[in-house]
Design a protein around this nucleic acid. Structure first.
Length: 476
RNA sequence: CGGGACGUAGCGUAGCUUGGUAUCGCGUCAGUUUUGGGAACUGAAGGCCGCUGGUUCAAAUCCAGUCGUCCCGACCA
């Protein structure tokens, strides 16, 4: 059965082209008139909504509250934390005219909201009894990026940013890692993406943070994608913005702060981790449509009735189902929903009506089977979705593990990077060695992964004593 | 922001060298017949050729600028 999609460039031919083909043909997004600003079409936005649903539950379970802060920040407020400003200044969009008058204190369209949150916290925190403050907001942010790609890097993107304040540094550090853990679980349970968790090097840290942790994913083309970050700020912002509280010992102290976020970039990760030459392949639990029902010869006796019956049964069980009643041919529909990555397809035709069964086809591997239409149907389908999720996760994990190359010399480093994937190496900790790798091979330190044992004594770049295991990769 | 490629109907394209308002396929709409891997026939709609300006009697075509997309770098979630 040749099922090669005719409209999508193959991944091996041109991965970048394949990516944008999928984004557009699967109707996830469209370009707008302004560079870097995309239209999230319903099917793409629905994926984001599933991510939101998952995370909102997790955030609330862990005591976080959703809030909404303004889109704009006074430039004078923004300028209060020096490192932060220097980090973001090159990519801010600034509003300078209101109505017809020039704005004196110019308005920065938020690239992130640390300033606003911290400033707000300075007004509402005065006692240790006010702590911790665990806020999250879902919003858009704007960064004036020079090169943009759908979902991966836009001038505007959607995300959530958690901002929390804590009584002690230990508590704040714990929060930072706790949220990283939630992101990691989201990868495992929702997106079927295995992440590498780790700490960022100083060079790669967030502007103003003491520690940055990240989840890193490996794309099909061997490039890495930073998929989420969690930052520990210490009390730097607190001090700069005058946030203080009276502790139980009667002393005035500055609280310790964290922030953490994931963005619509995750949609890009899902596309590039799981997709194939026929288009998108969506993990069942983020898929806006989990099951599509394609009627065959729908005007034949009993076909539509059976389709409707199955549709009702599955929908009532809480599954996201689409019954495509359009008069397109079955073949067209097969291709269409494959391109859109719908995990399961049900075919029901006259023969199936006679036998009271249906044809079930998995997107991920085209595995085809017959299923009886009986009281076990919902269970069987739900199990199949779980199976698909496991299958996709295992596949992605195998690809990740197969592409972490332990290297011991610069030559091996180059070889590993050219092959694609992560080069795992020992590192002295000097910025100079990072810079050199960047210059020689266009690769950056993705993270210092957790729980790794040293396997060499020296840094392959400079030959000095090695301190850390670090992963280098070419990244998006 | 540096180097390169491109921009003609929703999508993919021909025409550009040698100026005379546009070709073809897919898709769209109406109707009929169809339907187990991208249906067939008949009829129809849809474009001031990315945008702005210049040259010219006349610009998709020549010139300049600008915007956008993609690729390779620098920067970043």
């Amino acid at each position: 059965m040749d099922i090669k999609n005719k409209e999508i460039t193959s991944r091996d031919e041109d991965f970048a082209k394949w990516y944008t083909d999928v984004c557009k043909k699967a109707e996830l997004m469209d370009y707008s008139d302004v560079k870097g600003f995309i239209i999230y079409r319903p099917y793409g936005y629905a994926i984001w909504e599933e991510i939101q649903n998952y995370l909102n539950k997790e955030f609330k379970k862990t005591g976080h509250e959703n809030v909404y802060l303004p889109l704009v920040i006074n430039e004078s407020l923004f300028n209060k934390e020096k490192e932060h400003v220097e980090g973001f200044a090159p990519e801010t969009l600034i509003a300078t005219i209101g109505g017809k008058e020039e704005i004196q204190d110019r308005l920065i369209i938020r690239p992130t909201s640390e300033c606003l949150f911290t400033d707000h916290y300075s007004k509402i925190i005065s006692s240790y009894r006010d702590l911790p403050k665990l806020y999250n907001q879902w919003c858009n942010v704007v960064r004036w990026e020079k090169t943009t790609r759908p979902f991966l890097r836009g001038a505007e993107f959607l995300w959530q940013e958690g901002h929390t304040m804590h009584r002690t540094s230990d508590e704040a550090k714990e929060e930072t890692l706790k949220m990283l853990e939630i992101y990691d679980r989201m990868g495992r349970d929702l997106l079927a993406i295995p992440f590498v968790k780790g700490r960022k090097t100083d060079k790669e840290k967030f502007a103003g943070a003491l520690e940055t942790y990240s989840i890193e994913a490996l794309m099909h083309d061997g490039k890495a994608l930073q998929s989420g970050t969690s930052h520990y700020f210490g009390d730097g912002f607190s001090k700069a913005f005058g946030v203080s509280f009276l502790d139980s010992d009667g002393k005035i102290k500055n609280p310790y702060q964290t922030s953490w976020g994931v963005s619509t970039r995750l949609i890009g990760a899902v596309i590039m981790v799981h997709g194939d030459d026929n288009g998108l392949v969506l993990p069942p639990f983020v898929a806006p449509i989990q099951i599509v029902i394609v009627p065959i010869q729908m005007n034949k006796e009993g076909v539509m009735a059976k389709c409707n019956e199955v549709y009702e049964t599955l929908t009532n069980a809480g599954l996201r189902v689409k019954l495509d009643k359009s008069d397109k041919t079955p073949g067209w529909k097969f291709n269409e929903y494959e391109m859109k990555g719908v995990p399961l397809r049900i075919e029901i035709g006259p023969k199936d009506v006679t036998n009271n069964h249906l044809v079930l086809v998995r997107r991920v591997d085209h595995n085809k089977e017959f299923l009886d239409i009986n009281e076990e149907l919902v269970n069987n389908i739900q199990n199949e979705l779980k199976n698909i999720h496991q299958l996709m996760y295992k596949k992605a994990l195998a690809n990740l593990l197969a592409n972490i190359h332990e290297i011991h010399s610069l030559d091996e480093l180059k070889e590993a990077l050219d092959k694609g994937g992560y080069a795992k190496m020992m590192w002295c900790g000097d910025r100079a060695c990072e810079d050199k790798i960047k210059e020689l091979y266009q690769a950056t330190a993705r993270c210092i992964p957790f729980d790794e044992l040293p396997f060499d004594d020296t840094c392959p770049v400079c030959g000095k004593k090695a301190k850390y295991v670090v992963l280098f990769a070419r990244a998006y």
